[in-house]
Nucleic acid binder design. Structure first.
Lengths: 114, 114
DNA sequence: TTCGCAATTGAAGAATTCTTCAATTCAGCA
DNA sequence: TGCTGAATTGAAGAATTCTTCAATTGCGAA
């Protein structure tokens, strides 16, 4: 059983880390439905333009999104549709965990009522 | 079209952020194959005991893993098997993205062939 | 009890990431 | 040319996360 080469889990961690920001999550979810110009992302995400640009830059560096200039605007899109699967799986896990907490809460309440 | 409630993408971001650390990734991948005592994780992951404990605490708080004390040792396990899907999807995306950067690609393929 | 091992905790400084501001680039148009 | 709106960039301080150390807890054996 060979040990996992060192740089690999670092790469995986870096990858997940780029997803670990609310604005970047929002961008990816908006791009699920197709390419969008920055201007449009900006109207849906309440954040300063320069901040959005910073987060878009992070996503670009990681290679999760691509950007194309079209005249005066820049249009962003997902680099791979797999991202959609990832977000869906994450949501499922989150749902499970919240449900689990709900059950736990219910148990605690039932217990307290005895 | 109602906007996504604010705390939700924050929750998603927090979730991904807990995955954004090489030691935590390693732990989750080791737990894929079943529950393991801390002592055993420690032999496979080269890190100080207190550091591993800190990272395990992060995973516990997020609810991704569970811990049970068995005598002198503590055994960890995945809280939900969905985590396995998430890691697999992430690997697929990484594979897509780094095609052309030989080293990492080879490692990913070797891992997939296990 | 007391010792020893396994694991965790709290806290401090180091390192990284975020947010914001000012300045800059780029394209289109008067 | 110069002006405007769109988007990006660089840099600084603020905020968060990491690593490490020392101290502590829990449990079984002597």
């Amino acid at each position: 059983m060979s040990p996992m080469p060192v740089p690999l889990y670092q790469a995986k961690a870096d990858f997940f880390r780029t997803l670990g920001h609310p604005v970047r999550i929002r961008v990816l979810e908006l791009l699920r439905d197709g390419p969008r110009p920055v201007r449009e992302l900006l109207t849906e995400i309440e954040v300063e333009a320069s901040n959005l640009s910073q987060q878009l830059a992070v996503l670009r560096r990681t290679g999760l999104v691509g950007a194309v200039r079209e005249g005066g605007t820049v249009v962003y899109s997902l680099a791979t549709p797999d991202v959609v699967d990832l977000l869906a799986t994450a949501r499922r896990i989150l749902t499970d965990m919240i449900t689990g907490q709900g059950e736990l809460l219910a148990e605690l309440q039932a217990e307290a009522a005895e």
